[in-house]
């Protein structure tokens, strides 16, 4: 059985089917890319996976358990974390605080521990700070720990978002256009980093427009157009798929 199974999910906004009976399977340790023209429903699909939108129909099974119609908080705890298409960091907080907030769900001490600064509290705080530094180090942001998120260059902000998603102890990372707005060198570095994450055991679902990134990195590609899945397969098959080319470039008369 696949790690994440999406079975015939739909999302209707009034009369509009933003996502229409899409099914896909994701295996552990895979990089899956979801591509499609603007407005095809990719981000809506992500919103459904992370619980931001309720499903109109269908089910989502993660690691053997249904997660559709759970709250976003419950879904993060189960191990799905995301980044946002238009960066949504906590801008006026420091880089390290952004990562620590990602660790919120598994920072476990009680309110009394907070008030009385118990041994347990201090131990956990040191542990979490230590791990936050390690994560920032591995993503190349250690020099920026004291900085405020809003002051970071664009590429660093994208990387910080990934760091924050990792810090939730997620097993599946949903990256919504991580290379958007990056220069070729930055997106090259990002590509390497995402591959490294996969090698460390993360499963990655990617929305991306940069075809260079998509073709180089994906184990499989899923193509969505007008809310429907129109193709799925290996990168080289997708690149020559007639329906995909039609969706992107239009039909030849």
């Amino acid at each position: 059985m696949a790690f994440l199974e999406v079975k015939g999910v739909s999302k209707h906004f009034g009369g509009l089917a933003a996502v229409d009976k899409v099914s896909l399977e994701v295996n552990q340790g895979e990089i899956i890319s979801v591509i499609g023209p603007n407005g095809a429903g990719k981000t809506t699909l992500f919103n459904m996976l992370t619980g931001a939108h309720a499903l109109t129909e269908g089910e989502i099974i993660f690691d053997g358990e249904p997660i559709h119609n759970h709250t976003p908080q419950e879904i993060v705890e189960k191990g799905l974390a995301r980044t946002f298409q238009n960066i949504r960091l906590f801008p006026e907080l420091r880089v390290i605080e952004n990562v620590l907030i990602g660790m919120h769900i598994h920072t476990q001490y009680s309110f009394l521990d907070i008030l009385f600064r118990t041994k347990k509290f201090r131990k956990i705080e040191v542990e979490k700070h230590q791990r936050a530094i390690d994560i920032l180090d591995s993503i190349g942001l250690k020099q920026q720990v004291h900085n405020y998120a809003v002051n970071l260059p664009y590429g660093d902000q994208r990387r910080l978002e990934i760091a924050r998603a990792i810090s939730t102890n997620a097993k599946i990372l949903l990256l919504d256009e991580p290379a958007a707005g990056m220069n070729p060198q930055e997106s090259e570095e990002l590509l390497e980093f995402i591959k490294e994450l996969r090698d460390q055991g993360y499963t990655i679902i990617l929305i991306e427009h940069d075809m260079n990134v998509v073709m180089n990195i994906s184990d499989r590609i899923v193509v969505i157009d007008y809310g429907k899945k129109i193709a799925e397969g290996l990168p080289e098959d997708i690149a020559t798929n007639k329906r995909v080319i039609e969706a992107y470039l239009g039909r030849s008369e």
Partner: peptide, 14 residues
């Protein structure tokens, strides 16, 4: 502080 900065992102962090 996360809620102040971005409530939706805070929700998505659990």
């Amino acid at each position: 502080k996360a809620i102040r900065e971005d409530e939706l992102a805070a929700t998505m962090m659990g």
